[in-house]
Simulated assay, not measured.
Amino acid sequence: MDTVQNLVSGFSLDLGPLKEPLGFIRVLEWVFTIFAFATTGGYTGSSHFKIKCTGPPTKEIDVNPTFGYPFRLPATPYELPSCSGAQSNATYLQGDFSSSAEFFVCVGVFGFLYCTATLVLYLGYQNIYRQTSRGPFIDLVVTAAFAFLWLVSSSAWGKGLTDVKWATNPLHLVEFCKEECVAGEYPSMGRLNASVIFGFLNLILWAGNCWFIFKETSFHKDPNPPATMEEGGAPGP
């Protein structure tokens, strides 16, 4: 209870850090991190192809395999009708790309939480952050770690997205048709393409912010600044 009271009493809102690169870039990280995991998580899409039955009667049957995050494609079967009217066969998309997608989203969620915590620290507890060298040093290490994680997760998810596109390509799906099939519309992947772009933008932001955080540490600041004229007294004759 005393700790909570101390935190509340020690809170002093100061928007000044937002005018500095350290705080401004942290806000950009917060925004772009949300965009990164929000454009990946919750995504759903569908591919499309047609089965052409020569008859009689002549007809076309639409088939729309659906898929979505976390892109464990065999988890969602779709029906593949037969022109003869026989019972539809359950068919599955091939490929499990959940590991790269979930890793990317996980980095984004934890990055969002860290940005939120540090913004509260910058704006409400600036005196605590700068009164010792431990705060900026820990911030530097964690920010550098997130920059590395964005590099790894964005690269992995970029490769995973390429594989998802191939596995859901209608031209690839019609190869498994026993009837005469024609490829239709491609899945809309603009949102997922944006997620990869946001991932690499986060890499640039988090890596660049390391420099401004480094300037707050004792490694950059002079621990024994030279005395001013006032501190040292008036010079002798």
Rank of each mutant, 00 (worst) to 15 (best):
M1L: 14
M1W: 11
D2V: 13
T3A: 14
N6V: 06
L7V: 12
V8S: 06
S9C: 04
S12V: 07
D14C: 11
D14N: 15
G16L: 07
L18K: 10
K19W: 09
L22Q: 10
G23A: 12
R26F: 04
F32D: 01
F37T: 01
G42L: 04
G45T: 00
S46I: 01
S47F: 01
F49D: 03
K52G: 00
T54K: 14
T54H: 11
G55W: 13
P56A: 14
T58D: 06
K59R: 15
I61N: 01
P65G: 06
F67A: 00
F67S: 01
F67Y: 02
G68M: 04
Y69S: 02
Y69I: 04
L73Q: 02
P77I: 10
Y78M: 10
L80T: 00
S82G: 06
S84N: 13
S84K: 08
S84R: 06
G85P: 09
Q87A: 15
Q87M: 09
Y92Q: 02
Y92K: 12
Q94P: 00
F97T: 03
E102C: 11
V105G: 02
F110L: 14
F112C: 09
A117Q: 00
L119I: 15
L119S: 09
L121D: 00
L121G: 05
L123C: 05
L123K: 07
Y125L: 07
Q126H: 13
Q126V: 09
N127I: 03
I128C: 06
Y129Q: 07
A144N: 01
F146G: 01
A147L: 07
L151R: 00
V152D: 02
S153M: 14
S153W: 00
K159L: 10
L161T: 00
L161D: 06
K165M: 12
K165Q: 15
W166S: 12
L171H: 15
L171Y: 13
H172E: 14
K178W: 04
E180C: 02
C181S: 02
A183C: 14
A183L: 11
M189Y: 14
M189K: 02
G190C: 02
G190W: 03
V196K: 11
I197A: 15
N202G: 06
G208K: 09
C210R: 01
C210P: 02
W211L: 14
K215V: 07
K215I: 04
T217H: 11
T217D: 10
P225D: 08
P225A: 13
P226W: 05
A234P: 03
A234T: 12
P235G: 01
P237L: 12
